[in-house]
Write a protein that binds this DNA or RNA. Sequence first.
DNA 1: AAATAATCCTGCGGGC
DNA 2: TGCCCGCAGGATTATT
Length: 302
Amino acid sequence: MPELPEVETVRRGLESILLGARISNVVVRNRRLRWPIPPDFEAQLVGLSLVSVERRSKYLLFRLSATEFVRAVAPRMTSQPGIAVNPLPQVVGTLLAHLGMTGSFIAHRADSLPAPRTHDHVDLHLTARDRPYVLRYNDPRRFGSMHFFEGNDAAQPLLAHLGPEPLTDALDAAYLYRETRRRTGPIKQALMDNSLVVGVGNIYANESLFRAGIHPNRAANRISLARHVRLVREVKAVLTEAIAAGGSTLRDFVNTAGERGYFQLDYFVYGRDGKPCKVCGTPLKLMRHGGRATVFCPTCQR
DNA sequence: AAATAATCCTGCGGGC
DNA sequence: TGCCCGCAGGATTATT
């Protein structure tokens, strides 16, 4: 179940393999994702080359150019405001994709492409450095989405109302404190509200609150600035550590090479209700926020 | 404006 | 063994 660290893991994998690749063909087997894949999707993509893969919230943005170019020797770091090694061609459009709950992109060498299996909805045929690949999108639950757009990100309804990225300076304690003054609901749900801050789903909300020692039920506007400082620090830390571990693999997450992540081994609370707290030994409790399981330590979290 | 509920979907695991 | 049911959950949309 991809959250920000899993999407970032996928982004890095895609860039490392497919930067500069030209899309030669697009095969859509099932258009019925979260929103239907538009009928002109395939025609819009064929012939374009991959300039970069960026991430905004849990969306992947494949920046595409009409002109082919040679991949730079050093990969361009798009997660940080980096310096392009070579001048990059002009972006003419963007493939916007979301993995939903169960989506995955796997890059196959074209000469060892398996026969399509159930839920293999989209194949992007690409050629990178004269080597043909097929980037295959699989999504059993079809909560993911995919479409192409031209123009500014801000004009995209899906991107227009997103809060700041948690791993940038746009998220700090002063911001979170200020923006929660009128929120009387549980901090857990505020953290998961994408208009406040993006990329923190159920798993990492649980983990961040535990590590910050904050009870998930505490009203957001009744948390002091000092405790917001700690919360912001832990949100950033838990996401950063999860990215370093290649994300979390519960049932089904795999990266672009089909490999699993390992951060689930470091969970303090998620999925551990009834088990002893790793810090104090108290049995962890389960409650629900908006249908989502919340696990917390009644001793460590206040 | 904020909070809550309903909705989409398939796979899996528990209970009987 | 097999069937039913609840649950998993991101994010939009609708409703209060």
